[in-house]
Amino acid sequence: MTTHKLLLLPGDGIGPEAMAEVGKIVAVLNGAGGDRFETEEALVGGAAIDAHGVPVADRDMDRALKADAVLFGAVGGPKWDGVAYEIRPEAGLLRLRKDMALFANLRPAICYPALAEASSLKRELVDGLDILILRELTGGVYFGIPKEIVDLGEGQKRGIDTQVYETYEIERIARAAFEAARTRKGKVTSMEKRNVMKTGVLWNEVVSRVGRDEYPDVRLEHMLADAGGMQLVRAPKQFDVIVTDNLFGDMLSDIAAMLTGSLGMLPSASLGAPDAATGKRRALYEPVHGSAPDIAGQGIANPIAMIASFAMMLRYSFALMREADALEAAIAAVLESGTRTGDIMAPGCRQVGTAEMGDAVAAEFARRLAA
């Protein structure tokens, strides 16, 4: 029996409410007689600013580096709008990604059959949708230097963000995309803006070479990122694996998320490179939704994206495929039964709150594990 040590970072807004429902899933696993999970919590985001004056304390960063995996909630809210840019709540997440060297962000966009009507697109466009977006996470415009606002005098200022990519950064995310495609439908779509950006030219060149030389069995196509956004809302099922940079990945993954009916439904995984000695990866898992301060504390938030992020953890960090499959199937079964939180409510369904949705998924998960 293996024991896995998890660091839970609930964060702000609805983060703690959704994270509490993962505790029910952990309890089911710990009672099932297989691998066990030990958890500890720490502060991040606005909660950490209030307690420590920084969005993630050094000692909690050290805990994240030593954990077998990290589960993250959400950060931010109007309470912290006035803090300095360098210590804004989101800076805690950026530090986690950077210090843990989490270069590959995996964001699945899956439309559960029971929710096809909740999409903003017609059912036939999204029913059966299964896309995986790989976003490069530690380079690009979010981290490029210089990043500053310069006072030019006479009431004028200049804002500067620098888009920078090196060959190795593009190679490793490209390889991750091609490897993922080999386990799916065998197609990768690389998105950039080579028509106006030099980084896009390099991105296109490197991805093409990696695909040609190392993955000739995987079909590769290139698409300008703006055209890709249009195609995601026009004919999303044409895509299998999409690989793109940090900025475009941020935007395109949110577009893809809304195809499924709600941001509250989708998980994500952020992975580092395998350790040369052990093969283990540092990893952080988080729901795609934000902190939603407007509904925080009301017990109505949808916890499915958080629970599904834990399912990704079971799959990618611990290779517990049976358990991951059972948890994902439990989510689908609960939705098929008509159980809904308010964001995905439909006529004829039964509306529940955060805790009741968590209870339903945990009970179904337990049933499937025992079968």
Rank of each mutant, 00 (worst) to 15 (best):
L259C: 09
G264R: 03
L320W: 10
D217P: 08
L284I: 08
M265G: 05
G73Y: 07
L71M: 09
L6A: 04
P287D: 02
I242S: 00
I170K: 09
A269F: 01
T260K: 06
L9G: 07
D99C: 12
K198L: 12
R219F: 08
P216W: 11
C349T: 15
D343T: 04
R282F: 00
A324T: 00
N302P: 02
L224M: 15
V241M: 01
P293N: 14
I344D: 00
D99R: 15
I149Q: 14
A360I: 09
R234L: 15
Y85R: 15
A27V: 08
V241W: 00
P303A: 09
N30E: 01
F318G: 08
H4S: 04
V288A: 04
M313Y: 00
T162M: 13
V361I: 15
A227N: 15
R123A: 01
D35M: 05
G261F: 09
K66E: 06
A277S: 10
L314P: 01
A256V: 07
A366D: 15
I133Q: 06
R97P: 04
T167K: 14
D130T: 13
V44A: 08
R135C: 05
G33T: 11
L134W: 05
T260Q: 06
L266D: 02
V28C: 00
R63M: 08
L29D: 10
P55V: 06
Q351V: 11
M312Q: 03
R340W: 03
R194I: 03
M19C: 06
E40Y: 01
M191D: 12
R97E: 05
R123I: 07
A330G: 01
A292P: 02
G34E: 11
R219Q: 13
D62G: 06
G342E: 04
V164R: 15
V288M: 06
L271C: 01
R88T: 04
K5S: 12
P274A: 14
I344M: 04
G82V: 07
S253G: 05
F178L: 09
G186A: 09
S253V: 05
P303T: 09
R36S: 13
I110P: 00
L220N: 14
G279I: 09
A20P: 02
D35E: 14
D62M: 11
V22L: 07
D161P: 02
E205S: 15
A67L: 10
M312I: 02
L96P: 03
E336I: 00
T183I: 07
G128A: 13
L6K: 03
A91V: 11
M258Y: 10
P10H: 08
E221A: 07
E364K: 13
D294K: 15
P293K: 15
G229L: 14
Y142S: 05
L93H: 06
C349L: 07
R322E: 12
E328A: 06
A330F: 01
A292N: 03
A74N: 02
S291R: 02
T339M: 12
D217C: 05
V334Q: 10
R158E: 14
P89S: 11
R194T: 04
L71S: 03
D275N: 13
V150I: 14
S291L: 00
L232E: 13
D60I: 02
